[in-house]
Design a protein around this nucleic acid. Structure first.
Length: 597
RNA sequence: GGACGUGUAGCUCAAUGGAUAGAGCAACGGCCUUCUAAGCCGUAGGUUGCAGGUUCGAUCCCUGCCACGUUCACCA
């Protein structure tokens, strides 16, 4: 046990320690500290924190009310920051003294102390990981936002985070768009046509698919079975030949490949920039895909994998409750999982990290289980692999499918949401006096904020539904609501400063102020929960509560026109604090706040 | 068929085994000569998919069933 001053210790811990002592002294029973639940007192009851005594009735063998009031009395004797206690059924509601809250105000004025979760761990966090044959869509936005946000949250809880992107820049799908461009592109570039460069490439991918389907249809009409037609269509054969040429290092092919990928990266960078997403290191599959093969052969030598007569290599994972899994095809080419084995090793050599986290959709949960098991078999530590699994983004019509064109394009959506912010702002007319450039920036901050929040507020592991007809909200539980709260506070504070008031201080702790302080006090634990559960949505719920509580406060308590000076500076203090917290929480989502709105 | 997941208000989503299951949107009704109305207050809206079980207490845990989704490829 560290020798901490009790005032610095979280009050919940102090309470728990004393509750343990209570049961030790009175009932000679040691209870598990972790089993004690201390929560913020619910609205409508008198108190700051509540202890539920029901779980301890077995020990005490009395009525809940009796136990609660005995415990309350004990705690009040031991902890001097308790002002009063109140018993409702089995709940002991504890009110803390004004001094406690003033002390909290003073210490939190300097810094907020966040608990450390993966303490000092080095974490390599992979996210985004796009294919270079089509532009980004809403599903990628969710991935990118989750990754970027988790990196910030994990940093806050004491980890060193390295953000990496693994670009899927090779394979048959890339060859398809290359082939289409070579056949029908007439040597044109995105600049020639004036199309965003990743979309330009994506269009050729779609074109390939269209022509390919036509060929398949033709063959089927000639009497071929569909499966056979899919294999025999000239286009797919050409694409495969192109892939072979690429693997053989044919200069002509590589030239086209590099050029087209370059276009895609240019387009991606634009989208990443808008989303506020960045990486410390970018891996390219073309540079890492061979590594996995070596490891598979090594495993084969060690006898942890086995080879079938046709030459294909497998691993048997039935002892872990999984199936048998192919690692190398009979022609010795690698599959998806082979490459992931390779990239893990490369990454581990590069960083020697404690955890390798992957932000990847929940449809790949099985894949990651398999990966962990294989790494274990190879004598590596599969438990270092953490799959940050998130749900799919669905449309009212069902799942988004690139090839069927039922996707919400990332750039389109971003543009739409900024446009909507503009319309709304013009309607309200509050920005009319600003310069064009400032206006434009403001629309962007609000629109992108709305989009980011809209996605991140939903529990990461759950599927979510996006209705393009309704798009993204700007009212209620949204980023603009929170941004607006902040902007309004700033305006208030500026007015106060103009009146010559510049020291805000907590002198009065009345009920409305206390309500806000209680919420502020929770913040570090909220962050801890978000880090533990790998879910930024926890924070969104919190920000919204805070902003709503404050708006209520603002609406019912005059601040600049408070009855007396003490009340005025106290309310200003609380306002300032809320603004600081809102800004901090929003920054974890990569959301900015405009000066005016 | 096996594995995993989801099912809460008309819609989109909340709710560490606890107090009266909450918000927003949509609907209806109030509040701007007073700190920015992207705000605030109110009304209405629920058999938490169904049936059992565990317990002082279940939206949450267990079992069975129903519905939906994902996954189990010599695709990535």
């Amino acid at each position: 046990m560290q020798n901490q001053k009790t005032t610095k210790m979280r009050i919940q811990e102090t309470l728990k320690d004393n509750i343990c002592n209570f049961f030790n002294e009175r009932y000679n029973t040691a209870i598990d500290k972790a089993s004690i639940k201390i929560e913020k007192t619910k609205e409508g009851f008198e108190g700051d924190f509540s202890v539920n005594v029901f779980p301890f009735l077995r020990i005490a063998k009395t009525k809940p009310e009796t136990l609660a009031s005995d415990l309350g009395q004990y705690l009040q004797e031991k902890i001097n920051t308790i002002q009063s206690v109140d018993v409702v059924k089995g709940f002991l509601n504890i009110s803390l003294s004004d001094e406690f809250w003033k002390e909290f105000a003073q210490t939190s004025a300097r810094t907020i102390n966040f608990p450390s979760i993966y303490s000092n761990d080095k974490i390599v966090l992979e996210f985004s990981s796009p294919n270079t044959n089509k532009p980004l869509h809403l599903g990628h936005i969710r991935n990118n936002l989750l990754g970027e946000s988790m990196s910030k949250i994990l940093k806050l809880t004491g980890s060193r985070v390295i953000k990496v992107n693994l670009v899927n820049d090779r394979g048959i799908h890339i060859c398809k768009s290359m082939l289409a461009w070579m056949k029908w592109g007439k040597g044109k570039t995105p600049a020639d046509i004036g199309v965003k460069s990743d979309k330009f490439v994506g269009d050729f991918y779609v074109l390939f698919d269209k022509k390919y389907k036509e060929q398949v249809k033709e063959l089927v009409e000639k009497g071929m079975s569909e499966d056979e037609a899919k294999k025999e269509a000239p286009l797919i054969k050409e694409a495969q030949e192109l892939l072979e040429k690429w693997e053989a290092g044919d200069p002509e092919t590589l030239k086209v490949w590099e050029m087209m990928n370059g276009w895609v990266y240019e387009g991606f960078d634009e989208t990443y920039k808008k989303l506020g997403v960045s990486f410390d290191k970018i891996y390219y599959e073309s540079q890492t895909y061979k590594k996995g093969k070596e490891l598979v052969y090594e495993g084969l030598k060690k006898g942890v994998f086995y080879q079938k007569e046709d030459g294909s290599v497998w691993v048997d994972l039935t002892d872990a409750g999984l199936d048998q899994k192919l690692l190398l095809r009979s022609d010795q080419t690698s599959v998806y999982i082979t490459q992931d084995i390779g990239t893990f090793i490369i990454r581990d050599n590069d960083y020697h990290a404690d955890k390798y986290m992957y932000v990847v959709g929940n449809e790949q949960e099985y894949h990651f289980k398999v990966l962990q098991q294989i790494l274990n078999k190879l004598g590596l530590d599969g438990s270092k692999v953490v799959h940050i699994s998130y749900g799919m983004v669905n449309l009212p019509s069902g799942k988004m499918k690139s090839r069927e064109g039922t996707v919400v394009d990332a750039d389109d959506l971003i543009a739409e949401v900024i446009e909507k912010a503009k319309e709304k702002a013009e309607e309200l007319g509050k920005l009319d006096n600003l310069e064009e450039e400032t206006k434009r920036k403001t629309y962007e901050i609000i629109g992108l904020g709305a989009l980011k929040y809209f996605i991140l507020k939903i529990d990461a592991k759950k599927d979510m539904l996006f209705n393009p007809q309704q798009s993204v909200d700007f009212e209620g539980n949204t980023a603009p609501f929170i941004q607006y709260t902040h902007v309004r506070i700033n305006s208030l504070i500026n007015k106060a400063k103009n009146q010559g008031i510049d020291t805000f201080e907590l002198k009065v702790v009345d009920k409305p102020i206390r309500t806000i302080l209680k919420t502020l006090y929770e913040y570090p634990q909220i962050i801890a929960k978000a880090a533990k559960t790998l879910n930024p949505a926890v924070i969104a719920n919190y920000i919204y509560d805070l902003a709503r509580d404050y708006n209520q406060f603002y609406q019912t308590n005059p601040i600049l026109k408070a009855e007396n000076k003490d009340l005025k500076v106290s309310r200003l203090y609380v306002s300032q604090k809320v603004a600081d917290y809102l800004k901090h929480t929003l920054s974890l989502f990569g959301i900015d706040i405009p000066k005016k709105m």
